[in-house]
């Protein structure tokens, strides 16, 4: 399961082995890329993202005590939006990001089982082995979801 088709693409995600749950390695040029790839990895578990349309807009603002906790906060807020409104994002723009705050604009779709594939339910993004760090090429992250 990878988020990019071409090799050496500047941002993407790849699933990692974890027995009970699913972990993802995330990479990108900027910290914002890590947050976008984290969201895309989450949506890839839930549905076929290619069938989502960008028909609605949601503005999201989240806060956390540090950057890694912010990633979990952001992903779990996306799960909240899905659980309460059926909202799944197709396009994500990070408008503002600091180590403790994130503001994003999402364009997406309301889940409809007639149009969208039902994959796996995700309970939450966890703090277990959570990481965001700089690399020579940019940034990488690591997140495990509880399914």
């Amino acid at each position: 399961m990878t988020g990019t088709s071409k090799r050496h693409q500047s941002a993407g995600f790849r699933s990692l082995a974890h027995t009970a749950d699913v972990g993802f390695k995330l990479w990108g040029e900027t910290v914002a890329d890590i947050f976008i790839q984290g969201a895309q990895s989450l949506y890839s578990l839930m549905t076929d993202r290619r069938r989502l349309r960008a028909r609605q807009v949601q503005e999201v603002a989240v806060e956390a005590p540090d950057q890694e906790a912010l990633l979990v906060e952001w992903l779990n807020y996306l799960l909240y939006l899905y659980d309460t409104q059926g909202f799944l994002a197709r396009q994500i723009e990070i408008e503002e990001i600091s180590p403790t705050r994130l503001h994003a604009r999402l364009q997406g779709d309301t889940f409809d089982p007639r149009r969208h594939e039902v994959k796996t339910g995700v309970k939450a993004a966890t703090y277990h082995q959570l990481a965001i760090r700089p690399t020579p090429e940019g940034w990488e992250g690591h997140v495990i979801f509880d399914l």
Binding site: A64, P65, N76, Y80, K123, A124, Y127
Partner: peptide
């Protein structure tokens, strides 16, 4: 269901602060 998942997530966040407040050193944030 989602109610329980949210309760867990909410309190992990709160108890991470409590962990610092009570001075616990933990090998895993979770």
């Amino acid at each position: 269901r989602g109610l329980g998942h949210q309760v867990c997530d909410d309190y992990i966040r709160k108890l991470m602060q409590a962990t610092n407040k009570y001075g616990f050193k933990l090998p895993d944030r979770q």
